[in-house]
Design a protein around this nucleic acid. Structure first.
Length: 546
DNA sequence: TCCGAATGCCAC
DNA sequence: AAACGTGGCATTCGGA
């Protein structure tokens, strides 16, 4: 059963229900959304709505969870662009409001937004859009794959809302300790903490630059130049090459200044409330299908402060990451038996060494990353021919993706997400030499993008399937207990998840997380015997994992 | 004074 | 050693 929800004129909510494919929609109006959804959810319908982030948070706030949904905006973006649905009316029609960029939900009351016109929002007709989308899927050459992707993408939207609802357990006191240890006590607003002040004085003295602000690259570059240090930038790795007494304290300053500005006291005040860090997640926010973040920097949580992520008393964190996910995805997608075999024993990179393709694990890793990113120089570039000889099908897949991109063609992930229509490679015949070379560079850069797109995007699909399966399994374990009173997901980072879990359930949860990884592999690749092992750590704080 | 580009570093 | 993909975010700096 499907139930489509929409806001209609007069700020009313309409529900259009369809019990099976052949039936027509029955319309009703909803008085109280949470109680309506809670009642209907007993029959586990698929809820269809324009944008999960506009509907689900208020349901969760009322302690109403839903099992399945269909996010029209996210699915539209996939179908509109996918090679697998390129002939559909949805793909060929004029752009509509469904193509508009995501609109962040309006805060309940915000003076800033009142000016923008506060008439109630009326949704574009979601039933018509749903019909168009289903038609596009039905006419696709690969309806199974694309449907799987739409389901996974929609499940991801539910998970993102639940992650934000639950929040990541965060011990503000522990965070403050970490800051105090490294930076000194919290300084008054606008002043540098003690550790930074001391380092700054040293740097200023050693460079004989009393007024120097190391946070200003221009200023710093000038000061370094005055003592004879020739550098083209002030990046840390470049400064590390230099020999001068000021470099040590300068690098230390930069490290601590980064901690202060990115995850210091201001960050703590802004993003942590009541023992939870609640960042913004944006499912489908990256072209490849990865999630993006907006607010809080969830996807760049530095290792330095992960020790502040502490499970509640009596609870644990189950931290799981998919080992060498992208190369394994490449192996499975290309059907490269040798590379699949190399990953069968556990450590894919060790398997590559064992096959004799390269000498060390580090070489295997660098070479694989280079193959997926398009490295041409350095050690990675030098190892490529050997990798290609050992794993011809895997390397051919990324090489073909790169060539397609260079020709201006689109490429597509395992389940059917296509790259944006690119940067044409063309240049005209009368173009000057520099124009030709610029065009060639642009084409090559786009080729590196499409090369990476197929692997990164397919890995993102695997991760969505994995996480959706984990969510389903955790819900089954919960046996009616509310989301956050039972084991629940609290963090997601591309190929890694964290489950907040009562201590006595960690074994079961770990097992379910592993089973979910097997299931994800089957969802993407069917019977291909590719392994997707996960490393699971049961810890009290996130800093203890890995 | 506001805003976008440039810079640099964090995550995968 | 520093070129090789996807991002977010804080800070500086120069132009409107």
């Amino acid at each position: 059963m499907l139930i489509v929800l929409a806001r209609v004129a007069g700020d009313r909510i309409m529900a259009a229900r369809r019990t099976d494919e052949s039936a027509s929609f029955g319309i009703e109006y909803v008085k109280d959304l949470p109680s309506f959804v809670a009642a209907e959810e007993r029959a586990t319908p698929r809820w269809v709505w324009d944008d999960t982030s506009h509907w689900y948070p208020q349901l969760l706030a009322a302690r109403v969870r839903v099992d399945r949904c269909y996010d029209l905006r996210l699915c539209h973006a996939i179908l509109r662009n996918s090679e697998l649905t390129s002939g559909s009316a949805l793909a060929t029609g004029a752009a509509s409001s469904w193509d508009a960029p995501r609109v962040p939900d309006r805060p309940a009351s915000g003076a800033l937004f009142e000016l923008e016109g506060d008439e109630p929002r009326v949704d574009a007709d979601p039933v018509a859009e749903l019909v168009l989308q289903r038609e596009a899927v039905a006419r696709s050459a690969q309806p199974g794959r694309i449907d799987r992707l739409l389901a996974a993408e929609s499940a991801g939207a539910l998970i993102a809302a639940e992650l934000e609802y639950a929040g990541l357990p965060w011990d503000a006191a522990r965070h403050e300790e970490i800051l105090a240890d490294l930076l000194g006590p919290r300084p008054p607003e606008g002043e540098r903490p003690a550790a930074l002040r001391e380092l700054l004085e040293q740097v200023q003295q050693l460079l004989e630059a009393p007024g120097l602000n190391p946070d200003s690259p221009v200023d710093l570059l000038r000061a370094l130049g005055r003592v004879g240090l020739q550098v083209t930038s002030t990046r840390s790795w470049e400064l590390k090459q230099l020999k001068h007494p000021a470099i040590g304290p300068l690098l230390e300053y930069k490290k601590l200044a980064r901690l202060l500005s990115a995850n210091g006291w201001n960050w703590l005040d802004t993003w942590v409330r009541d023992g939870r860090f609640r960042p913004g997640y944006v499912p489908g926010g990256v072209v490849t299908g990865r999630w993006a973040a907006n607010g809080g920097g969830a996807l760049q949580l530095p290792r330095q402060i992960r020790g502040a992520v502490i499970a509640d008393p009596g609870w644990k964190l189950v931290v799981a990451d998919a080992s060498q996910l992208e190369p394994r995805i490449l192996a499975a997608m290309s059907g490269d038996r040798g590379m699949v075999q190399a990953g069968a024993a556990g450590d894919l990179y060790a398997g590559i060494v064992a096959s004799g393709a390269v000498e060390t694990r580090d070489q295997a890793k660098v070479a694989m990353l280079g193959a997926m990113y398009g490295a041409t120089t350095g050690e990675s570039g030098r190892l490529m021919p050997r990798l290609e000889r050992a794993y011809p099908k895997a390397i051919a897949l990324v090489e073909e993706a790169a060539r397609a991109g260079e020709r201006g063609e689109i490429v597509t992930t395992r389940l059917g997400r296509s790259s944006p229509r690119g940067q044409g490679a063309g240049y005209d015949e009368v173009a000057s030499e520099s124009e030709v070379s610029r065009a060639r560079n642009r084409a090559r850069a786009w080729g590196r993008f499409t090369r990476n797109f197929v692997v990164q995007g397919s890995a993102a699909e695997w991760a969505l399937c994995w996480m959706a399966s984990i969510r389903r399994r955790l819900h089954a374990m919960a046996d009616g207990t509310w989301l956050t009173d039972a084991p629940h997901l609290v963090f997601f980072l591309h190929d890694e998840i964290v489950v907040h879990c009562p201590a006595e359930l960690t074994d079961t949860v770990s097992e379910q997380v592993r089973l979910a990884a097997v299931e994800a592999g089957q969802l993407l690749f069917g019977a291909i015997p590719a392994e997707f092992p996960v490393t699971v750590a049961v810890v009290d704080n996130y800093g203890q994992a890995k």
